[in-house]
Design a binder for these strands. Structure first.
Length: 308
DNA sequence: TTGTGTTTTATTGCCTCC
DNA sequence: GGAGGCAATAAAACACAA
């Protein structure tokens, strides 16, 4: 028996263990007749197919003639109790549920007959069972989605780190190129004999001049006041110029916030002053005066920074 | 034994379909 | 309009720790 509730002292208690009995169902109890007092939950010992289920093995322990009227009356006036199904009944229902989780009327009646239950009880059991299945299914779906999300996030984090690493690499190489270009220009300047402002080897449009406030003096003359004795040309570094001396060679590999990225992008703006290089890599215009992509195709820029 | 959380059985109300 | 399904809920039964 399932559960093992506390009403196992008498034949009626034994019976009650197997079937829900309404305390107001005086008439049906001994005569096995169907009854209805308005509620569709009322239970009869004669099932919907007309079979007296008291002949079912589940009910053979009960003999109404052995019970006195007083005892019966006492039980009949007790509040209605819920009765759990036996393990055998549950097992049988489970098997049927595995076959088909929906219940056609004929199958419901047959199951009820086999189990000595009301067809409605069978229907309720299937309904509750479907609800439990759905809950489990949703839980599993949620776990699967979470696992999938975690996996994707790990991938994404890895890509972001790699992205940062590559960006840093671009910055380093850019810095080197800048220094090299400046060295070349200085040698040209020192060799030149004619007075006046040197020819600007790097195009720098008016609009660009306005946008870029701190362009190296030798690239856009009169724009920079930076000097650094460590380099041939004062060691100009556009990053250092903005007080972020650690940035250029110490990449932040952590997940960047939007603000951090915005600040970084602002700093990087000052690197975008290599129009000549644009000509050599027109398939990959990484260093354009008009478009600063930090070495990444425009489509990458559109979605950057990631919302993490 | 008792308090508490969980599971199971059943009800109610609403919705859809025929 | 009735039958059946589902979501939300109630309440009894059960499990278990303190």
């Amino acid at each position: 028996m399932a559960g093992g509730g506390g009403c196992e002292g008498s034949a009626i208690a034994s019976l009650l263990q197997k079937q829900r009995v309404s305390p107001s169902s005086d008439a049906f109890f001994f005569y096995g007749s169907s009854f209805s007092v308005g509620s569709r939950s009322m239970v009869s010992f004669e099932d919907a197919s007309g079979v007296n289920v008291s002949k079912n093995p589940f009910f053979q322990a009960f003999d109404p003639h052995e019970i006195g009227e007083e005892e019966l009356d006492e039980y009949l006036h007790q509040p209605e109790k819920k009765r759990r199904l036996t393990t055998e009944q549950v097992h049988f229902l489970e098997k049927n549920f595995e076959l088909e989780n929906k219940l056609e009327p004929e199958r419901k009646i047959q199951l009820a007959k086999d189990l000595g239950l009301q067809p409605r009880q069978v229907a309720i059991w299937f309904q509750n069972r479907r609800a439990r299945w759905k809950t489990k299914h949703l839980e599993k779906e949620y776990e699967d989605l979470q696992a999938s999300y975690n996996s994707l996030k790990a991938d994404c984090d890895g890509l972001l780190k790699e992205n940062d690493k590559l960006k840093t690499e671009v910055l380093v190489l850019t810095d080197k190129l800048l220094i090299k270009a400046r060295g070349t220009q200085n040698s040209k300047l020192s060799n030149a004999s004619s007075p006046g402002p040197p020819e600007n080897p790097v195009a720098c449009s008016k609009g660009e001049e306005e946008r870029i406030s701190t362009v190296p003096e030798d690239v856009c003359p009169g724009k920079s006041e930076i000097s650094d004795s460590d380099s041939p040309n004062g060691g100009y570094s556009p990053l250092r110029e903005h007080g972020d001396s650690s940035y250029a060679f110490e990449p932040d590999l952590s997940d960047s916030s939007q603000d951090e990225d915005y600040t970084r992008n602002e700093n990087l703006q000052h690197l975008c002053v290599f129009p000549k290089l644009e000509e050599t890599r027109d398939d990959y215009p990484i260093l354009s005066t008009s478009s600063c992509h930090f070495g990444f195709p425009p489509e990458d820029q559109a979605s950057w920074p990631w919302p993490y």
